[in-house]
Design a protein around this nucleic acid. Structure first.
Length: 329
DNA sequence: AACAAAAGCAACCGCCGGACG
DNA sequence: GCGTCCGGCGGTTGCTTTTGT
């Protein structure tokens, strides 16, 4: 048996709000407040609406100081940077942009900003050029060759980033996002690196290189993953890890980084909190297993047997939602 | 001018987690 | 400890507007 609905859907009005409804809701909240109970509010305000609908209407449209209209380049930059750091946590991103709502930012990202980034990464997919944030315009376009992506990423590391991991720290003291903070420090990306990160994040391109600090490289799909001790903050996009990820990663390592890398393989459950279960060594998730490159390849091939799409499989459900590779010294 | 396709955006849905009894 | 309620959130839907042919 499912959860009881929050309101009687038959007697509740749906769809766009009329100006009369807006003014009723606004007047009521301005004079009485929300009363800490959105469910009871519509009846008190004389509205035939679901409480959730009232809340959404107020938060996204009626409350004071809501900013509508074009997003500035600076707002673009903040959204991109935070998306690269924390993924689609729109409420946290919205908290960094006064006057903007999570819904606004989400819509903006899905309809415009993502396409801007895509156009930068892969301009041939666009029929016409798009205006980009000015901060991005001088950056060279990354290679379109998938096999060289990691190499490119490595060269970006070497030439454009301030430290080998490609990240720098900046203070965002007002950030309410505790998960992002580490001693009042918030992980932010170098914008040139962001390109590559976002390529993996937002595009259908197969690679998802997501460099994080301390020379970790992570793949996988845990969009919520970020360690509370700041040892790792990751972004990623839900998909399975494919063999080409590993070969790409291998190329990246051999061309842009160090020889004889080692990996730590970890896979977790659907319980996001498990990823926050920090280990004494600073890693998190299930107890990591150590592999060299050959070991990783063997693991892939063994797990690919009987699996037509060559994806790694670790469980009976043929899903690999929470797998990550760590590259470390 | 008419139509179709694409883009934009407000609103809905359903899941999750915290608060509380 | 358990169940229920409610707010918050992210993903998705579907209507409206804009753009292209």
């Amino acid at each position: 048996m499912g959860r009881a609905p929050c309101c009687d859907k038959a007697s509740v009005k749906k769809g766009p709000w009329s100006p009369e409804e807006d003014s009723k809701l606004k007047l009521y909240i301005e004079s009485h407040g929300t009363g800490g109970n959105w469910i009871a509010l519509p009846q008190k305000a004389g509205l035939k609406r679901c409480g959730k609908s009232c809340r959404l209407r107020w938060l996204n449209y009626l409350r004071p100081n809501i900013k509508h209209g074009e997003f500035s380049d600076e707002e673009d930059r903040i959204i991109c940077s935070l998306f690269a750091s924390i993924g689609s946590r729109w409420s946290i991103i919205a908290a960094q942009l006064p006057g903007r709502t999570d819904n606004d930012i989400k819509n903006y990202w899905n309809t415009k900003l993502k396409k801007k980034i895509m156009a930068m990464v892969n301009p041939e997919t666009q029929r016409k050029p798009h205006p980009f944030p000015s901060s991005y315009q001088t950056l060279p376009l990354p290679s379109q060759s998938l096999s060289s992506l990691y190499k490119d990423c490595g060269s970006y590391y070497n030439t454009l980033c301030k430290n080998p991991a490609g990240f720098e720290y900046s203070n965002i003291s007002s950030s309410p996002a505790n998960t992002l903070n580490h001693n009042n420090t918030t992980l932010t990306t170098n914008s040139s690196l962001l390109f590559h990160t976002l390529e993996g994040l937002v595009s259908p391109l197969p690679y998802n290189p997501a460099p994080v600090k301390d020379n970790f490289l992570m793949f996988g799909s845990e969009a919520s993953c970020s360690s509370s001790d700041g040892s790792c903050s990751q972004i990623s996009y839900g998909r399975e890890i494919k063999q080409e990820d590993i070969s790409g990663f291998q190329s990246y390592i051999s061309n842009g980084f160090e020889e004889n890398p080692k990996f730590m393989l970890s896979y977790g459950s659907d319980n996001v909190n498990q990823w926050g279960d920090n280990k004494p060594n600073g890693y998190f998730g299930e107890t990591p297993l150590e592999y060299d490159l050959e070991g990783v390849k063997q693991l892939i091939s063994s797990n690919s047997e009987g699996n037509n799409d060559n994806n790694m499989v670790f469980d009976e459900n043929k899903t690999l939602e929470k797998v990550m590779y760590y590259y470390y010294h």
